[in-house]
């Protein structure tokens, strides 16, 4: 019953890594779109929209992602319809990422001094133009490091997708670890794979941070 931890298993884990990268792409794209919408709501002049965004951020940030995913996939049955695993993942990760990105990006936008907005207004720029040409370019500078940091956490969090039946990297590690009873070796291999994906992104972020801060 015990199998030796072999190259075959490592190959299996590589197929899992493929899924992990795919899921991360879905999460990053979906999360960025939803996060943008939420940020705009949060900084909008409309108090109702802003308030809704605030409550949303509070609730979703406080809920473990596994639970959000679980409810997105299985909870829909209680509402009388079903969703495919990838749809549930896209929805849950987008909702989750939106809450954190919305918060990070709001902070960045609000950290741009009010004087700039007033100056732009005095120069006759419209609200949308002020946002596009004055506020957002400066906010991006502040928001980049925490955004990339969050993206790396999001990549690692795709491990939760196994709950909807996707055999991604962490799940392959579980399967191999239980077949070989060598959890340390197997999980270290998985950690190495995660590191190889995440570390270049972190390094890139560090470099970007340095260049932007000059």
């Amino acid at each position: 019953m015990f199998q030796q931890f072999s190259l075959n298993h490592v190959y299996f884990m590589l197929t899992g890594l493929g899924w992990t990268i795919g899921l991360a792409a879905i999460a990053l794209i979906g999360g960025s779109i939803a996060g943008s919408v939420l940020t705009l709501m949060r900084v909008s002049a409309n108090p109702v929209l802003s308030r809704i965004a605030q409550v949303y951020i509070f609730v979703v940030q406080g809920t473990p992602l596994l639970v959000t995913l679980f409810i997105a996939y299985f909870g829909s049955t209680y509402l009388g319809f079903t969703v495919a695993p990838l749809t549930a993942i896209a929805v849950a990760f987008s909702f989750y990422a939106a809450a954190f990105l919305g918060d990070i990006w709001r902070g960045a936008i609000q950290s741009v001094p009010v004087g700039q907005r007033e100056g732009a207004h005095a120069l006759g720029l419209s609200g949308a133009d002020t946002m596009r040409h004055i506020i957002i370019p400066q906010a991006i500078r502040i928001a980049t490091p925490p955004t990339v940091g969050f993206f790396v956490q999001l990549i690692k969090n795709t491990s939760l997708a196994s709950v909807v039946g996707i055999v991604e990297l962490t799940r392959t590690a579980q399967i191999v670890s239980n077949a070989t009873f060598k959890p340390l070796e197997v999980y270290l291999t998985a950690a190495l794979f995660y590191f190889l994906v995440c570390f270049p992104i972190t390094l890139f972020s560090r470099r970007l941070e340095k260049r932007l801060s000059v």
Binding site: F74, T77, T82, S162, V163, G165, V167, R171, Q174, I175
Partner: peptide, 17 residues
Amino acid sequence: ILDQVSQARIPNLTSNK
């Protein structure tokens, strides 16, 4: 065969997956 983690065993069944 649908591989499943232990928390998903029953929800997979009750929600017709």
